[in-house]
Simulated scan of single mutants.
Amino acid sequence: MDNDYQSESFRFFGLCDALREARHVVVLTGAGISAESGVPTFRDVMTGLWAKYNPQKLATPQAFERDPKLVWEWYAWRRELVSKVEPNAGHRALVDLAQRVPRLTLITQNVDGLHQRAGSQDVIELHGNIQRVKCAKEGTVIERWEETGEVPPRCPNCGGWLRPDVVWFGEVLPVQAFNDAALAALDSNVFLSVGTSGLVEPAASLPLIAVRRGARVVLVNPEETPLLHEDVDFLCGPAGVMLPALIQETWPSEAD
């Protein structure tokens, strides 16, 4: 554990036992864990070339209908930003945790794919993935298409526009993904909410579901969030420090 966080070790009291005894650990991650890798938050990317645009007017179905070329190019720029960063110690710690508990379900609100790049398997992506593309008309994921110079490109199946496979403002979350996430929360013994504001619904309801079912719920965040109350533990610090430290505290003889 980093020296700066030695004084925080008391916060793990009891949580280490809960993790060792847990049958099912569920983790929900948000923008905070990716920000530690250098991924700009949603509003941070609206600088320079894009400063004159309102992000909520670039991330809606209406915006795409109005100016599909602009929206496609904005997401292409964001994909380039994401491609230049690497998973951090927080992402890697969750891969490690998955190998130490009987069952771990990883749910993310992030669209950057960093969990998968770190080695996490079967990630539930509530908001999609910026690296994937789907047909705006049919909703099917498209892996290959003919490059004709059109922006955005056309679906090879129906000729409709292609768009990023992400959830825009005004759109509902993928039904199967959210149902799987909610069922996991109901079944969890320990629920970690990592780098999330606790403000974005319906994902914000997941730790509350776990609390009501009697799970140990822990927030991992550099600052307090609206979810913090007496039934929830709080580890104050960045995920890249707190998660590896938690694993080291829980399995000291096995941790590197």
Rank of each mutant, 00 (worst) to 15 (best):
Q6S: 13
R11A: 15
R20D: 07
R20H: 11
R23A: 09
H24W: 12
V26I: 07
V26T: 04
G30K: 08
G32T: 07
F42Y: 14
G48L: 07
W50K: 08
A51M: 10
K52V: 10
K52I: 07
Y53D: 01
Y53T: 01
N54P: 00
P55D: 03
K57H: 14
P68N: 14
L70K: 14
W77C: 02
R79V: 08
L81W: 13
L81A: 12
N88Y: 05
N88T: 04
G90M: 02
H91D: 03
R92M: 08
A93P: 01
V95H: 07
L97V: 05
A98G: 04
R100P: 02
P102C: 01
R103H: 11
T105G: 04
I107Q: 00
T108G: 02
N110M: 09
N110L: 09
L114G: 04
H115V: 06
A118D: 05
I124N: 09
E125N: 10
C135H: 07
K137R: 15
G139R: 04
G139C: 06
W145H: 06
E146P: 00
E146W: 12
T148F: 10
E150D: 12
V151K: 06
P153N: 09
P153S: 10
C155M: 07
P156N: 09
N157A: 14
G159P: 08
V167L: 05
W168K: 05
G170C: 04
V172R: 11
P174Q: 05
Q176A: 14
L183E: 15
S188P: 03
N189I: 00
G195H: 08
T196C: 12
G198I: 07
V200E: 06
E201D: 11
P202W: 11
A203Y: 03
A203Q: 03
A204Q: 09
A204K: 09
P207Y: 07
L208M: 13
I209K: 04
A210S: 11
R213W: 03
A215F: 05
A215V: 03
V217M: 05
V217R: 01
L219V: 12
V232G: 06
G237M: 02
G237I: 01
L243P: 01
I247M: 09
E249H: 14
E249Y: 11
W251Y: 03
